[in-house]
Amino acid sequence: MTDNKTRMKPSAANPFFSLLSSQTGYLILVIIAVSVIATILNPRFLSARNIFNVMQQISVLGILTMCMALLMISGNLDISIGNMAGLVGMLFTRMVLSGRPQGIAVITVMILSTVLGLINGLIISKSKTTPLIITLGMSYVYYGISLIISNGRPHSLGGQFEFLGRAKIGPVPITIIIYIVVFALAYLFRKYTTYGRRINAIGGNKEAAFLSGINVDRHIIYLYGISGMITGLAGLVLISRLGMVRADSGSNYALQALAAAIIGGITFEGGRGSLVGAFLGVLLLGIMYNAMNIIGVSSYMQTIFLGAVIVIATVISNIGKIKKQ
């Protein structure tokens, strides 16, 4: 029964198709195609300034997508990271506005977000419940806390803490550098550390990981903690870029990060997927947005297009599987 499947190997007869069959390959092609079209319609698209602009716009989403991607590779996910980032921003703003030193506020919110991540991991692994529901619930809790500490009103930093969001090293905005560093560290973590390898194994086969003597619960809890810490960083970048914060400032990010990871070829089943793919997934979303802005597509239409991209990309990434059956 299973023999047909086990004997089949991924074919690589045609180099074009083999490029298409790898998620990163086809994402690169799509990104190039979108860029070419956008450049033809408006040459300004390819300017260095615009490219930095795109990168800066996707930095928060990009950082959060790394959290989501690592969690998904381990067979988990966390849709509370958006509101967690929002809560971090709100708490930071309140602390700074009430006269606390920025350094203390940064440390406080980073510790807080790490602890929140650990709590998510603890609940999910010890109660053996579905991450989707647990983190959905936690997402509301964070949003509610943000509402309480903000009294439901937006808060402006009044020009403080602009450094992270607006400063540049040479021509490169710091946000982009932070994003690239987070990506590089996540990549190293996944590929070169025993921890990352075991996370991958747990996502691939939890039972086999358990029987191989891997402490499944501990690895998952720590991963949620790491994800929380990175989310704290994303929250700080977010507030620094916006200069103001509302209770729902982070709300949209979690599902967008999920979408970007899936476009990048990471699956709900876990155990596989590349962080480069997730990186490209974020880039594609950013470029689409930017291209539509430059071309002058209305923001209502943009929403439709983005939704369609998510659907189409997911369908395309599954074509390989359809053929196998």
Binding site: N200, A208, A209, L211, G271, R272
Partner: peptide, 16 residues
Amino acid sequence: ANGLFLSMPVDQNITI
């Protein structure tokens, strides 16, 4: 079902 990491390559399965 519970011995292999099917989505992972041969070398990583051996060293896990």
